[in-house]
């Protein structure tokens, strides 16, 4: 029962979060300053997602085998590797380091 409540709650809240901007501001011309901010938005959001998932666990900062795997993926992406290649490399490096005893 609680599981279904959880699903309903998360589904409704997520849909509302995604709908808010388009409903309130949709289809309108916005000032040029706004559009410059919008053009830059993806970079800090993605950077934040990367560092909080690769360098932190919950509320504390930590470096572990996955961090090394992600660094390897970054080098591959920068050199033009397809997404799946970099991601699999990250997984293999992480699993390999753990097999050798890394955290």
């Amino acid at each position: 029962m609680n599981g279904w409540l959880l699903i309903a709650g998360v589904a409704l809240l997520t849909a509302a979060i995604k709908a808010a901007g388009p409903v309130v501001l949709g289809g309108r011309e916005l000032p040029a300053r706004f559009t410059r901010v919008v053009g830059l938005l993806a970079a800090p959001l993605m950077a934040a997602l990367v560092v909080t998932s690769a360098l932190a666990d919950g509320r504390h900062l930590q470096v572990d085998a996955a961090t090394a795997g992600v660094v390897v993926a970054g080098v591959l992406f920068w050199r033009g590797s397809p997404v799946i290649v970099g991601v699999l490399a990250a997984v293999v490096v992480t699993a390999g380091l753990r097999a050798l005893g890394a955290p």
């Binding site: 993806a42 970079a43 990367v50 992406f77 991601v87 097999a99």
Partner: peptide
């Protein structure tokens, strides 16, 4: 043990690297 916790950050890193091709970002 299989290293799947590296998938999530690596995925976002792929998106980030695409953004970083533009120096102003």
């Amino acid at each position: 043990r299989l290293g799947v916790d590296a998938i999530f950050p690596a995925f976002f890193l792929a998106l980030l690297v695409a953004e970083l091709r533009r120096p102003e970002t």
